[in-house]
Simulated scan of single mutants.
Amino acid sequence: MPVILGIESSCDETSASICVDGEILSNVIANQTIHEAYGGVVPELASRVHQQNIVPAVQQALINAKVNKNDVDAVAFTRGPGLLGSLLVGVSFAKAFALAKEIPLIDINHMQAHVLAHFIGDNKPSFPFLCLTVSGGHTQIVLIKDYFDMEVIGQTLDDAAGEAMDKTSKILGLPYPGGPLIDKYARLGNPDAYKFPEPQIPNLDFSFSGLKTSILYFIRDNVAANPNFVQENLNDICASVEKRIATILLNKLSKAAMACNITDIALAGGVSANTGLRQGLLALGEKNNWRCFIPKMEYCTDNAAMIAIAGYYKFLKGEFTDQSVAPLARMPM
């Protein structure tokens, strides 16, 4: 009955989790509000706040799980991809904890962990399945053949879907983080009010740079004609942008499902918390007779529970690393 301590520090959330025999008993997430004043994550500030948060987060995770630190069998941690300074804090803590307790270290790929978040709880997909992983830094369609046998069959050629939402929120003058606000206002708007272009990218790849530019010019031209355009039409703008991003993602996912002849379809990553995307996937799944899987909200954004569950499956395989391990800002799946 292995007890795994999971550590996540890839960006601006410091998170710790305890997994016992494949069951998540705690998932503590310490958010960083300091970045709100700057309209985005400041890497140096993020790493400093991680140093302040990591010990209390781990302590609280142990308390919530009612687990003694001496009972931990292994430490799983995010090795990459992510902000190097932020990763360094988590990696250093994990190495020190493992060294002090003389227990194994398990390095985890952040993007693989997003996929494996679907194995938290009882409702699990069956292999092989497809997973659309969408976040501020990544947009990928992944063919999952086994827990750690994953093949990226489609990905963004430039910007990620989450980045397109973040850029849109800045253009609209919304405070950081803007993604949840776009979701909120979109629920009140008409998704067919404005038409934004869908990039014609071959195969299963994505591109969002052109969409970002079209949104920028759309807002610029309409504000020139009416300075109050954004304030008067905010809900409709957000709903229309959200719909276009969702259709771009889901149209490619549908093509991938047909090409691979797979009906177990999953959604993961921070943008999977978006209501429009979740609803769109479920509607498409009902139309195509898919079995759809979406993690609980707390497992969509960056969190240590997904690191801990990934660590659990690596522990069963005996796949450990050593004290020479270093964080990687870029780390292919």
Rank of each mutant, 00 (worst) to 15 (best):
A268T: 04
E232F: 02
N274C: 10
F293C: 08
H110M: 14
L249T: 02
C11D: 02
F97S: 13
I106D: 07
M258Q: 15
N261I: 04
T156P: 07
A100W: 10
L328R: 14
L105T: 05
E13V: 04
Q52L: 14
A164F: 08
D302E: 08
Y313I: 06
C131S: 12
S92V: 01
V325D: 08
H138F: 07
I34H: 09
F127T: 11
A305Q: 05
T263Y: 04
A305T: 05
D149Y: 07
Y147L: 13
A37H: 12
K296V: 00
A326G: 00
S272I: 11
S17V: 01
S9N: 05
V49E: 08
I4F: 01
S17H: 01
Q32D: 12
Y312Q: 06
R278Y: 07
A160C: 07
V3T: 13
E298S: 04
G189W: 14
Y194R: 14
S272P: 11
Q51T: 08
L172H: 05
P128I: 03
Q200C: 09
N289E: 15
D107F: 00
G173E: 13
K243E: 14
G318K: 08
S169C: 14
A225W: 02
N251G: 05
F208V: 01
G178A: 09
E298T: 00
A193L: 13
F315N: 11
Q323L: 14
V67I: 15
E163G: 03
M333P: 08
L174W: 05
D302H: 02
N226R: 13
C238D: 04
N190L: 14
A266G: 06
